[in-house]
């Protein structure tokens, strides 16, 4: 079972529906027993990093996330959920993250408009990666964020060009993440989730 982690961060129904549309049976849960039995975990997230990290700590779910990764089972972070996987964030001060990926979340200090909001193209860094198998380079996905993962490109599968290179899809071992919202990215988003289905089955 695919388990979407519920730690009180808004509406998760659209995330759940995204997975179900491609045939990944999913539940939204904060129950450790269900989470421990998960074949894959989804870490969603909206809002500010520090608030989300606080909610995640209070939920008591962090040890189960680490245990899941230790067993080499897949995890997918979405949007702020991706950012939480990194070592720390500079949003509203300095907050430590889960540290599962190397890098820091930094503000977009660019001349272009912030937040980076709207449809942008994916530029492939690792064109042969499984998650990209059903989409084309330059396909559009929906972004909405003001901070980004400042990291080297080692773990980056695809990025978006917005004055700077914004890591858009990352993968390292059993960990996968997207800065954009696949569940809001029309057909392209579903194709990425379709590929994720193959990763987890």
């Amino acid at each position: 079972m695919n388990v979407i982690l519920d730690y009180d961060v808004g509406n998760l129904d659209s995330v759940k529906r995204g997975f179900e549309r491609v045939g990944i049976k999913s539940v939204i849960s904060k129950d450790p027993i269900i989470i421990q039995a998960a074949t894959a975990l989804i870490l969603p997230g909206v809002g500010a990093f520090n608030e989300a990290m606080k909610s995640l700590r209070q939920s008591g779910l962090i040890p189960y996330i680490f245990e899941h990764i230790k067993q080499n089972k897949p995890l997918l972070g979405i949007c702020l959920g991706m950012q939480l996987l990194y070592e720390a964030s500079e949003e509203n001060g300095y907050t430590e993250g889960l540290g599962l990926l190397k890098g820091t979340i930094k503000p977009l200090n660019i001349r272009l408009k912030v937040p980076h909001m709207g449809w942008n193209q994916l530029i492939f860094q690792k064109p042969d990666h499984t998650l990209l198998k059903y989409i084309q380079e330059h396909d559009y996905v929906y972004f909405v964020h003001a901070y980004y993962a400042a990291t080297n490109l080692d773990d980056v599968i695809a990025y978006a060009d917005y004055e700077t290179k914004i890591p858009a899809i990352v993968a390292k071992g059993p960990i996968y993440a997207t800065q954009f919202h696949p569940e809001k990215s029309a057909a392209v988003g579903l194709k990425i989730l379709q590929a994720f289905k193959e990763v987890i089955s």
Partner: peptide, 8 residues
């Protein structure tokens, strides 16, 4: 609408 659409 949220259940039907996959765009914002």
């Amino acid at each position: 609408v949220a259940a039907t659409l996959q765009i914002p």
